[in-house]
Design a protein around this nucleic acid. Structure first.
Lengths: 189, 189
DNA sequence: GTCTATATAGTGATAGAC
DNA sequence: GTCTATCACTATATAGAC
């Protein structure tokens, strides 16, 4: 999918370092060391540290935005829509766990693209909220505060990358099998 | 509870800034500016930036550790224990949302106290896991992968501070009323 | 308790050789 | 595509005056 150009190597290594220590704590020298080159050499491929961050985060955010647009208008039940959203988060986490971490933890360090990102994220949450409210109106979803349900689901889905990448963590197959039931039905027997 | 000494003012202002931009992105000059003093003056009250971080995070982690020790040995059902854990997270989030954010986002920047923190966190998760497994064994909790349920609950509880502090967010009363049902029963009607 | 001045080390980024 | 050398600036932290 993504060609293994030098630029992409730099960006994906950066995502890995940002995941572990955060954007601000990773220096261009750290990134260069991890690639066995000197910091100055990075600038033959990228324009700035900020550009790397924006590339990582905006790419992920647009992927979520595009998929949400597909899902929200489908002629399926609320529960089916929610299952598709859960699968979307699992798929993107499995594909790009490092970028998912940046998306969650380092978005506030965006500069030029910050407002664009914040709007995408607000729209995504609003679409999620609307789907939940439709479900409540139709009796599919419990009649509780939709904000609590939204926050509970999104918190879990957004931090999947922590548990997916940790040793003795959870694998993709188990996630896909059990995440929908856990979020929709809870943990009680 | 906490005396309003100059030192505590510095620490609580630091927690607020760390929450917004992260430990690494906040400079001693930023912190000093926020307190309307010069950076050098901070060092009359604290020894280092690192000391501020450790004070914030270790204090929170020990509070969680102590409460979990109380809860785990009580002669009550698994569901009652889980409700007490949920309440613990809500109470500490309401009391110290800024410190909760640091605990979640900046623990990896601990230096001397890092291993102490990591052990406390692992023990907390292990106690939570044991409680869930007991619940499964006794038929109180659904017979699914306990790791998924643990991760789903902890992800939600650990990021409460995001939703509690945001405008149009969720208030403490609603959280206490609806969080247990949402996590235990899910969102399905 | 705060200040000015400063030490020491790092920061992102550029210029120009190979 | 990578290097060495370097610029301009910023970081944490200390010394000592008031």
């Amino acid at each position: 999918m993504l060609k293994t150009t030098r630029k992409n190597e730099i960006i994906s290594k950066a995502a890995k370092l940002f995941k572990k220590r955060g954007y601000s704590a990773v220096t261009m020298r750290d990134l260069a060391d991890a690639l066995n080159i000197k910091a100055a050499s990075l600038y033959n491929h990228i324009n700035s540290k900020q550009e790397i961050l924006a590339t990582i985060i905006i790419g992920m955010a647009e992927a979520f935005t595009n998929e949400m647009e597909q899902i929200k208008n489908q002629p399926i039940s609320t529960q089916e829509k929610l299952k598709k959203i859960i699968e979307l988060h699992i798929d993107l986490t499995v594909k790009s766990p490092d970028a998912m971490a940046c998306l969650n933890n380092d978005w506030m360090h965006l500069e030029e693209k910050l407002s664009y990102f914040v709007k995408m994220r607000a729209d995504y949450e609003e679409n999620f909220r609307i789907i939940l409210k439709e479900g409540i109106a139709q009796g599919e979803i419990a009649d509780r505060d939709p904000e609590i349900m939204l926050f509970s689901m999104l918190s879990t889905l957004r931090t999947l990358y922590i548990w997916y990448t940790k040793k003795d963590g959870v694998d993709a197959k188990t996630l896909k099998e059990q995440m929908p039931a856990t979020l929709l039905n809870g943990i009680r027997n």
